[in-house]
């Protein structure tokens, strides 16, 4: 789609959506949100960028192949449960630490690692499909 307005706004829209997707990802443990929906938002951000500016700028911008991103997410998901081995609890038990950084208590957990894994799997898989479809369209 080659309209000037869309092409001018798409990069800002993409940046905003990516930022928002990370917000949704991080709030997801106790509130609506999480890795899956965050990954979908991020994937649609990249899809919008692809529709506005073409597929190859997107591929250049994300540097890695979408499937490789998915693979990394899967890797994170699989290792998130292994921390339990060292804590003496069964596989996939959520483990929490509460470090205080600059006066703010951070709630970090193995669940978050798993959720980031889900985010990356969804982002990679949907982006892979979306970019392939967008490439087809211009042929």
């Amino acid at each position: 789609m080659r309209t000037l307005i869309f092409r001018a706004t798409a990069p800002y829209l993409t940046a905003l959506m990516l930022l928002y997707s990370i917000f949704v990802l991080l709030r997801g443990h106790n509130e609506p949100g999480g890795g899956f929906i965050g990954g979908l938002i991020a994937a649609s951000a990249l899809a919008i960028y692809g529709i506005a500016c073409g597929v190859s700028p997107v591929r250049r911008a994300i540097r890695y192949h979408p499937m490789a991103i998915s693979g990394f997410g899967l890797f994170l998901g699989a290792i998130a449960g292994i921390f339990s081995l060292f804590a003496g609890v069964p596989y996939m038990t959520g483990l929490w630490v509460y470090p205080t950084v600059f006066g703010v208590e951070l709630k970090l957990s193995t669940t978050l690692i798993f959720d980031i894994g889900v985010y990356l799997v969804v982002l990679g898989a949907i982006t892979s499909i979306a970019l392939a479809l967008e490439e087809k369209e211009r042929d």
Partner: peptide, 9 residues
């Protein structure tokens, strides 16, 4: 899963 992920990467 870990080795499948490594192969994907």
């Amino acid at each position: 899963f870990i080795f499948a992920a490594l192969c994907l990467m």
